[in-house]
Design a protein around this nucleic acid. Sequence first.
DNA 1: TTCATGCATCGGAATTATCCGATGAGATGC
DNA 2: GCATCTCATCGGATAATTCCGATGCATGAA
Lengths: 109, 109
Amino acid sequence: MNLDSALPALAALAHPTRLEAFRLLVRNEPEGLSTGELVDASGLTQSTFSTHLAVLAKAGLVKSEKQGRQQIQRANIDTLRELMLFLAKDCCQGRAELCEPLLAELTCC
Amino acid sequence: MNLDSALPALAALAHPTRLEAFRLLVRNEPEGLSTGELVDASGLTQSTFSTHLAVLAKAGLVKSEKQGRQQIQRANIDTLRELMLFLAKDCCQGRAELCEPLLAELTCC
DNA sequence: TTCATGCATCGGAATTATCCGATGAGATGC
DNA sequence: GCATCTCATCGGATAATTCCGATGCATGAA
């Protein structure tokens, strides 16, 4: 993950509909949810939500898979991990004291 | 950090100029940099960069302090930590196996 | 074959973001 | 007082985002 791949990921998450959808998918790992279920949860139109989903997919945060005539969506935790590593990297280089509290709180969960 | 505070933070970082400025401030902790130095690094107009800085400040990612007639900007690592915790929380609840690789890579730095 | 379902994509309208130059406010130096 | 420096804010132009209904394209059922 570099600047060019972190920016689309951040932009994808910087929208209430997309952030909610992504978190919903994370909570539904590893089964995933169909696009229709996500549409219902969003309260938006099917076409509108479809474009949001495309943004998440283009950023690598969501992977989809055909299943009959449904499209099953799954969160890509690897991309989330890489994004967090990218954000944390600058803090940690040469000054671990900045990231230690972060690690302390992360390990508790 | 909840959804309403995470969204402005994500939106603030989802712009090349702001992400670069924030990372530059993180690397310059804890001294900080003046607004003018950040403007020079951005290559943008002073007024344009000032609005970007206001976005970062409003999201709580940057704190500023007067020093003479300069404004010293500093990264707020607490907000970054809270944002990362917010993003990681959903992965970890009930399924530590999703976040373990993340922690493993974070502890190495 | 025919019909219905699930989803992506197109066209267009409304909103928002981004950028710049110009101006204003506060602090410092002469 | 007066000029200068540093930065925030205003107006306005351009570009991007967001949203919806309509359409198209598969898949599965009748």
